[in-house]
């Protein structure tokens, strides 16, 4: 565990808590993509199957259980409890265009052709693009609430901090995972446009609104 990794995890944790607080306090899931959350649930479920096969640390286990628990609770809030506020018309990204190629790629490009390893690889690839339905929704509606922007900033920062973690680990431990690094770079690049808007608008007290 190094400082980049810890900050990355804390950023990820903060993102999830910000999203839950937004939904709970406003009793609304407006502006949130249910499809992105379903993709994240798929990512966590696929990646954390190793909860049953290997124990790493109390920290590791607690975080995994928290991530899985909260993402399913988020889906419950979007599709059941606060369903009336869910903007399904604008959440129209076709997720099969992500799942199918990502599944195929996980079969073709992996570290080892074994079930758990392929499922892990699938989760890494899927995570890198899972935010697309959310970004697509914002581009369709042309705006994002400030709290939603904070959520996205924390979520995007998490993988950027992991990139720093991997650079550190490469030099400190000789650890290098090409699949995670390439997917992490792709994931971070997808947020760049948003990061720019966040820094130029949200940090100056304005909300994100795109020209029509």
């Amino acid at each position: 565990m190094n400082i980049f990794r810890l900050c990355g995890d804390m950023s990820h944790l903060a993102a999830i808590i910000i999203l839950l607080l937004k939904m709970w306090k406003t009793r609304s899931v407006a502006g949130i993509s249910g499809k992105s959350q379903i993709l994240f649930a798929t990512v966590f479920t696929a990646r954390y199957l190793d909860l049953f096969t290997s124990f790493i640390s109390i920290y590791n286990t607690c975080m995994k259980v928290f991530f899985i628990g909260t993402v399913y609770f988020t889906i419950y809030l979007i599709y059941m409890k606060f369903k009336a506020t869910y903007d399904s018309n604008h959440d129209s990204f076709r997720v099969e265009f992500l799942i199918v190629p990502v599944g195929g790629l996980a079969f073709l490009v992996n570290h080892e052709f074994a079930p758990l390893e392929i499922i892990w690889t699938f989760s890494i690839y899927l995570e890198s693009v899972a935010i697309l339905p959310q970004l697509f929704m914002i581009s369709k509606t042309g705006e994002a609430e400030t709290i939603t922007s904070h959520y996205l900033f924390a979520l995007g920062s998490y993988r950027a901090l992991y990139l720093c973690n991997w650079i550190y680990r490469y030099y400190a431990e000789g650890f290098f995972d090409l699949i995670a690094v390439v997917a992490g770079v792709v994931q971070t690049i997808l947020y760049c446009d948003f990061f720019y808007l966040y820094i130029t608008k949200v940090m100056k007290g304005k909300k994100i609104s795109l020209p029509a």
Partner: peptide, 10 residues
Amino acid sequence: TQHTSIKDEL
């Protein structure tokens, strides 16, 4: 450099 099959990251 090494790749570990035990994933210690989240």
